[in-house]
Nucleic acid binder design. Structure first.
Length: 516
RNA sequence: GCCCCCAUCGUCUAGCGGUCCAGGACGCCGCCCUUUCAAGGCGGUAGCACGGGUUCGAACCCCGUUGGGGGCACCA
């Protein structure tokens, strides 16, 4: 009935965008990020945080961080701490919120019970909310008896209970929930991302604000806090789009009793999906934000990729810094299409940022990963720092994430190298390998100088000129002997940094391991 | 089942009625460079879901179909 093509939505959105900009200086934008601290941090959640942050920063507005810890059964302090840490690591600083403060605190819902109790009472008194005694079982039974689908939910049966009926329920010891009386009108708004959206009157039943035991629920606390904190722009996942009519109705009631000053603007961000176009769930391993950090993604690399999940900076470019994101971000240009989380692309974007780093910066960022692997101290010793600085440029362009560096430089920070069996099988198998190792040993043992060019000249003379080997065959066995792997930084530089003693020892060890 | 959202290369996107036999990126495939692996350079592969309108002209506007997704709790 209300189907419209995307183009229509675009038109509305564009009109709205102009309005946004014209009045941008009059009304300061206030966005918020309001996760609940339950378990793992989800990449989709961080994408939502990023867009709210970027929108606030772009418009010169305020970014509020609020924690929705109203579910005692699932929330944890550890998860809460982890959320703050993740946000800070990504570089998303908040202007108001936990550990920062602000004029609308406290910013943890668990500390705002009084606020909700008060607002609930006022809603009840004003007649916008009412007490409802029906149990879920009774509602379902009534639906079935009427030949309706129980999925329709609550039937608004308790809207106009008489005093006698109410008294009777109370006499039974029932604890009523508090429900919002939904208005008898269409609920519609102009979405910042999707244009006009409309839900027909009567399609959303009266919903629960406060449980029978007095605990307020998310559909209640969320808009109440948004209103009290002066939130102007709500950017959230599309999965919450169908709860927007309820928010709008609540907002109307809150506005009536003086708690709110009209509804905020809404922008429903496209879902982040995984394989098979399904919403990326917490079960999917790639949804875990921590693994990217642990693998050594750069915050700016991840910010870049996350921003690409629904937004683009230009038609010919997709690598940018957080500063460029803030400068260019326009929420009305966010795509309404679901976005598949593509680890490969995320890696490619990150690798580009990695390569663009000044060498000293790269070293500083990679040290924690090497230290954790036990290769260097943190901080590294002077000698370790010297070697690291020398090898860094060669490693930097060979890694996608920082942790990739561990295996590439390990041979430089151990006395004896452990040779990868598969590499040995390929390069240290026969008599030819033995010949190469012997010749290399002879050439390097008495070499006067020990720079990379010295090493290169000596090895080429001995192996290519001397033994008549092709470059490939000549250096394969040497590389595996020296680094333990078939993949390594460039050989001559590696040998220079390794030093003569360790190089000769490794050639000898590899020679001894050659069968026959 | 009901409500809502979405629809351009395999993936993410650009596209705002003519400049689009559709541009970029990732991926993939070649070639060049090359001591391995990368990086870099060059080239290639592949897309407007379908059907009707509107218009001189539609990837773009309208309607429908189909397909995909999300939501329908005293969770958030």
């Amino acid at each position: 009935m209300h189907h419209r093509g995307s183009g229509h939505a675009d038109q509305h959105r564009r009109r709205h965008r102009h309005r946004l900009h014209r009045r941008g200086c009059a009304v300061t934008v206030r966005t918020r990020f309001c996760p609940s601290p339950t378990g793992l941090v989800h990449v989709g959640v961080m994408r939502t945080a990023l867009f709210n942050w970027a929108h606030a920063r772009h418009t010169g507005g305020t970014f509020v961080f609020r924690v929705e810890d109203t579910d005692a059964a699932r929330d944890s302090e550890q998860s809460y701490r982890h959320l703050l840490d993740s946000l800070r690591w990504l570089g998303l600083d908040w202007d108001e919120g936990p550990e920062v403060g602000g004029p609308h605190g406290p910013y943890r819902q668990s500390q705002r019970r009084e606020v909700y109790r008060d607002v609930a009472a006022r809603l009840l008194q004003a007649g916008h909310a009412y007490e409802s005694f029906s149990t879920p079982e009774e509602v379902e039974a009534r639906r079935r008896a009427a030949g309706q689908d129980p999925k329709l939910g609550y039937d608004n049966a308790d809207r106009d209970l008489t005093d006698e009926q109410e008294a009777a329920y109370r006499a039974e010891g029932r604890q009523p929930v508090l429900r919002l009386r939904m208005p008898d009108a269409d609920l519609a708004w102009t979405d910042l991302i999707r244009g006009d959206v409309r839900f027909a009157a009567g399609s959303v039943p009266d919903f629960v604000l406060v449980r029978g035991n007095g605990v307020p629920l998310y559909p209640f606390t969320n808009p109440v806090d948004d209103a009290l904190m002066g939130i102007t722009d709500v950017l959230r996942g599309e999965d919450l789009l169908s709860s927007t009519p309820r928010q709008l109705a609540l907002y109307a009631a809150l506005t009536d009793i003086g708690v709110a000053e009209g509804p905020p603007r809404f922008g429903h961000l496209p879902l982040v999906t995984g394989e098979g176009n399904r919403k990326l769930s917490k079960r999917d391993p790639e949804s875990n934000f921590d693994v990217y950090r642990e693998r050594g993604f750069l915050p700016e690399g991840l910010v870049n990729y996350l921003a690409l999940l629904g937004w683009s900076i230009a038609d010919d470019r997709d690598v940018f810094t957080p500063e460029e994101l803030v400068r260019a971000f326009d929420v009305t240009r966010v795509s309404a299409n679901p976005a598949r989380f593509d680890v490969k692309k995320a890696e490619a974007i990150n690798a580009t940022h990695l390569r663009a780093l000044p060498v000293e910066d790269f070293v500083a960022r990679v040290v924690p990963f090497l230290a954790r692997a036990g290769l260097v101290g943190d901080p590294p010793t002077a000698e370790q720092a010297r070697v690291l600085r020398a090898i860094a440029p060669l490693v930097q362009e060979r890694v996608v994430v920082l942790s990739d560096a561990v295996d590439l430089v390990r041979f430089l920070f151990t006395d004896e190298v452990e040779i990868d069996p598969a590499a040995a099988g390929r390069q240290l198998a026969g008599a030819e390998a033995a010949e190469v190792l012997d010749a290399a040993t002879t050439a390097l043992r008495e070499l006067p100088g020990w720079t990379a060019p010295d090493v290169e000249a000596a090895l080429k003379e001995a192996l290519v000129d001397g033994l008549g080997r092709k470059l490939r065959q000549a250096f394969g066995p040497v590389r595996v002997a020296v680094t333990g792997r078939t993949v390594s930084p460039p050989l001559y530089e590696s040998i220079e940094l390794l030093g003569r003693d360790r190089t000769l020892a490794r050639l000898a060890a590899a020679r001894a391991a050659v069968p026959g």
